[in-house]
Design a protein around this nucleic acid. Structure first.
Length: 198
DNA sequence: CAGAGGATCGGCT
DNA sequence: GCCGATCCTCTGG
């Protein structure tokens, strides 16, 4: 596992969403490390109505308007947290929702956090599920994902996998935009199968 | 396996 | 008040 440099990452939200596929997301809690490979992402930008930043800066979405490559975490449906990597230069509200991870290390810890009976395949399949498995929560909001020590992004980038794109999942505005990206053929993807043809 | 519906609560109008 | 960048369970095929 290697540290990233900000030069390794694209700033614009759709480009960053693509660039994150294949990289590792790491959390360390009380000395316990969990690692997942990013296999599915979605880009959001203040110029389009599906983005939280579309209606301007608020207390909740403030970090989307800050520096890129920081964690934006929000609570949804009274049940789940979602994890984003902020994108775009400061002042522009953008982000990348991480929708699925392939479990790489600390799989037993992930399983314990997710509860009995959850198949390995489902541990990090979905934005809310991966937050539970990786113990990501509101305390991580605003964290620097390049320099961080509790949650951070890591390399190396594996040999380039083929990346598919589709419409985004679970939104009702700007449904036609193809800003969802996924590692083609990967078995750990979320969303309807029909959106992830190999 | 796919689709439908309820749970649950903070943010914003 | 309303509704959501979701999850889980149940139902039917």
């Amino acid at each position: 596992m290697t540290r990233l440099h900000t030069d390794d990452l694209a700033v614009e939200a759709p480009a960053l969403a693509r660039a994150l596929i294949g990289l590792l997301l790491v959390t360390q809690r009380d000395g316990v490390m969990t690692v997942g490979r990013i296999v599915e992402t979605e880009a959001y930008h203040e110029s389009e109505p599906a983005a939280h930043s579309y209606r301007g800066r608020t207390k909740r979405n403030a970090v989307m308007f800050g520096a890129p490559f920081h964690a934006y975490i929000y609570f949804i449906y009274g049940t789940s947290y979602c994890f984003n990597v902020t994108a775009e230069p400061p002042g522009v509200g953008g982000g990348v929702l991480v929708r699925a991870l392939e479990p790489v290390a600390g799989i037993d810890v992930m399983a314990a956090r997710r509860g009995a009976g959850v198949r390995d395949r489902d541990l990090c399949r979905g934005p809310g599920r991966l937050c539970r498995a990786m113990a990501i929560g509101p305390e991580d909001n605003g964290a620097d994902l390049v320099a961080g020590t509790a949650i951070w992004l890591a390399g190396p980038r594996p040999p380039a996998a083929r990346i598919g794109s589709s419409r985004r999942v679970g939104i009702s505005a700007a449904v036609e935009m193809r800003w969802r990206f996924y590692a083609a053929g990967n078995p750990y993807l979320s969303g309807p199968r029909s959106l992830s043809p190999p």
